[in-house]
């Protein structure tokens, strides 16, 4: 329930992600089995695997979006910057500020472009116009969409093209100044040109923040990810530097998947 809770903001010591023996259940069904992984800061980590393998579910445990699903239960340990994010009374809204998310389908609010980006800072209590202006402009610039929209900030975000909407959503996520950005198949609904723009953008962003991207496109993982994790039926099969996983995978199943024998 949405009762406001006064709590001390947790202090993150860096933004390394450390997951140990994570099990996740939807009611009776187990969706993630014994997942353990460490993800370093300021790099791109890709999750690949066939549909329904648990990669998106796992992504959503990292900012606790699974909390929204009835009957979802999590066991095990998920640490970000040394903080157990599933500990009792943890400030989940603050976690989500620091661990931003962009979804598969662009989901701009039905408001102006400006108000879309100013939404998060306003949530944190920023009201001064010049402060908001600065955040809006810098977020749009970081998502490299500023030049395309600077003359129509007051117009509805829904008038933008799909690719622009998705970059707007990235800008909106950046406006909360996250240290990790979770991308859930961000380009699967986009054309190749828009996809290329977003991939280029990811290359820029990883200089400042960590990026975890779920993709079902293996070429995309190969192009942009420093490390890649392969999921299959709720298990983390293999996690290694991207070049290693695509050139000589250690696991039989990984080999079958990347050579296109199933998936």
């Amino acid at each position: 329930m949405g009762k406001p809770r006064i709590s001390d903001e947790p202090v993150f010591d860096g933004f390394k992600i450390k997951v140990e023996e994570l099990n996740l259940y939807y009611g009776e069904k187990q969706a993630l089995k014994n997942v353990s992984i460490s993800i370093e800061e300021k790099q791109v980590e890709a999750f690949i695997g066939p549909s329904g393998c648990g990669k998106s579910t796992f992504l959503r445990t990292l900012n606790r979006m699974n909390d929204l699903i009835d009957g979802c239960r999590v066991e095990g340990k998920v640490e970000i910057g040394g903080q157990d994010i599933y500990q009792k009374g943890f400030d989940v809204p603050y976690l989500r500020r620091k661990v931003g998310m962009v979804f598969q389908k662009p989901n701009p609010f039905p408001m102006s472009i400006y108000d879309n980006i100013a939404y998060a800072p306003r949530t944190f209590g920023i009201k001064k116009k010049d402060e908001l202006d600065e955040i809006v402009v810098s977020s749009l610039k970081r998502a490299s969409i500023y030049d395309e929209v600077k003359d129509r900030l007051k117009e509805s975000a829904l008038a933008l093209s799909g690719g622009q909407q998705q970059r707007l959503c990235i800008a909106r996520a950046l406006s909360a100044s996250p240290s990790i950005l979770l991308l859930d198949e961000p380009t699967s609904a986009l054309d190749p040109v828009s996809t290329a723009k977003i991939e280029e953008l990811i290359g820029e962003l990883k200089k400042e923040i960590g990026i975890v991207i779920v993709t079902h496109n293996m070429q995309q993982a190969a192009r942009i990810a420093d490390r890649t994790a392969f999921f299959l039926m709720g298990e983390l099969v293999e996690e290694a530097p991207t070049t290693a996983i695509f050139s000589h995978p250690q696991d039989e199943r990984t080999l079958s998947y990347i050579t296109g024998r199933f998936g």
Partner: peptide, 27 residues
């Protein structure tokens, strides 16, 4: 109102009440 709008708001660190009054109700 699409669920994705609620998710977008919550994923930005907004509380539930703000999500309801600033995103869901206006939409």
């Amino acid at each position: 109102v699409p669920k994705s709008l609620r998710e977008a708001s919550l994923a930005l660190g907004a509380q539930k009440s703000r999500t309801v009054f600033k995103v869901v109700l206006p939409s």
